[in-house]
C-alpha cells in the first residue's frame, strides 16, 4: 500500500533510445534520454523546462506509454509506487493519468465536446461528472453540444482541461499548454492548473517558457540534452541566478528579455554522446578537466543538481 510520502509519479534512471536508419539499410540506436530521474507528489506542480530536443515531451509520452514503436526504454517509471507496465498504462491512461494536449486538434473533430468529455470516464456517472466539470469551469450547458471547431480560443482551453479532469485523475500531464497565448489567456490556463493541484492532483507541466513555470510551479526541473540538469524549488528561480545551482539554469535566467537578454554561445549537443561526462561542459564558464568524468545527480541546498562545481 502506498504511504503518504510515496510520490504519485516517480521516474528512476529513465533512458530512451530510438532505432533509426542512417544510410540505406544500416540501423542505429540513438539515445535521446539518459539517466533521467524525477518525482511528482500529490498537490504539487512540477514544471519541466528546457530547449526543444531536451526530451521534455518524450518523458510525457513514456509515462503515458505512447512512444513510437521504434523507441526502446530502460529504467523505471513508478505510479504510486507501482511499476508502470504497458498493461497498467492502458488501464490508467485517461482515468488515473490524463494528458492535456496543446490544442483542440487533439480532440475528435466529429464528436460533440460534451460527449468526448464524458467518454473519458464511461457510463452515466461520467456524464454527470462531465456536466459538473463544465459548470465548474464556467462553460454553459450549450457548449457541451458544440463541435471542437466551433469553440473560441478561451473555451477550447477550458474544454481540453475538462476533458482531462472529468475522471478526476491523480496525475495530470500538460504538454506545452500555452504557446502563442496572450498573457491573460496563459495566466488563466495556469490558474486552472493551480486549482487542480490544490484539489489534490499531481501536475507535470511541460513547457519551454520558464516565465510561465515560475508563476505557477512548486518545483522546476531543468532538462538539458536528455538529462535533468537541476531540480529546484520555484522560489530559487524567482530569487535570481545566485540562488540557482547549475550554470545552465543560470544561463536560462540571464537570457530572459526582462533580465540581461544575454545568451550563452553554442547549442545543446546531439544524442549519442558518451554518457558519463557533463553534457554542458563545452558551453560552461566553469569547466575544468574533472568535467570529463562521471557527473551524477546530487542533493544540494534543498534541490538537486548534476554539476560537480555547484555550491
Amino acid at each position: 500500500m502506498t504511504s503518504k510520502d510515496t510520490p504519485v509519479l516517480a521516474v528512476r534512471e529513465l533512458q530512451i533510445s530510438f532505432s533509426m536508419y542512417r544510410k540505406g539499410l544500416r540501423k542505429e540506436s540513438l539515445r535521446v534520454i539518459r539517466s533521467l530521474s524525477l518525482d511528482v507528489r500529490k498537490g504539487e506542480i512540477v514544471a519541466v523546462v528546457g530547449s526543444s530536443g531536451a526530451g521534455k515531451s518524450l518523458l510525457a509520452h513514456a509515462v503515458l506509454g505512447i512512444l513510437p514503436s521504434n523507441a526502446v526504454t530502460e529504467g523505471e517509471i513508478l505510479y504510486k509506487g507501482e511499476t508502470l507496465t504497458p498493461a497498467l498504462q492502458r488501464k490508467y491512461r485517461g482515468t488515473e493519468i490524463a494528458l492535456i494536449p496543446q490544442s483542440v486538434d487533439y480532440l475528435d473533430p466529429l464528436m460533440r465536446v460534451g460527449k468526448q468529455a464524458a467518454c473519458a470516464g464511461g457510463g452515466p456517472e461520467a456524464q454527470r461528472a462531465a456536466r459538473a466539470a463544465f459548470a465548474r469551469y464556467g462553460l454553459e450547458p450549450r457548449v457541451e453540444r458544440l463541435f471542437p471547431f466551433q469553440l473560441s480560443g478561451g473555451m477550447a482551453r477550458r474544454v481540453l482541461i475538462v476533458t482531462a479532469v472529468v475522471a478526476r485523475p491523480a496525475l495530470i500531464i500538460a504538454d506545452e499548454p500555452t504557446p502563442g497565448l496572450g498573457a491573460e489567456a496563459a495566466t488563466e490556463t495556469l490558474r486552472h492548473f493551480r486549482q487542480l493541484a490544490d484539489g489534490g492532483a499531481a501536475v507535470l507541466l511541460i513547457t519551454h517558457d520558464i516565465d510561465l513555470a515560475l508563476h505557477v510551479a512548486d518545483r522546476i526541473a531543468v532538462f538539458y540534452a536528455g538529462t535533468t540538469a537541476e531540480i529546484a524549488p520555484a522560489e530559487d528561480f524567482k530569487r535570481g541566478r545566485d540562488a540557482l545551482r547549475h550554470p545552465y539554469s543560470k544561463a536560462f535566467l540571464d537570457a530572459l528579455p526582462q533580465n540581461a537578454f544575454k545568451p550563452i554561445a553554442g547549442a545543446q549537443p546531439y544524442a549519442g554522446r558518451p554518457p558519463q561526462a557533463c553534457l554542458f561542459a563545452d558551453r560552461c564558464p566553469e569547466r575544468t578537466n574533472a568535467c570529463a568524468g562521471a557527473v551524477a545527480m546530487r542533493a544540494l541546498r534543498g534541490g538537486e543538481v548534476r554539476c560537480i562545481h555547484a555550491t
Binding site: S19, L25, A62, V72, T73, G75, T85, P86
Partner: peptide, 14 residues
Amino acid sequence: MFERKGTRARFALN
C-alpha cells in the same frame, strides 16, 4: 515497455 529491447533483437534482419 521495458521488455521491448529483447524481442527486437531476435529478428536477424531489420
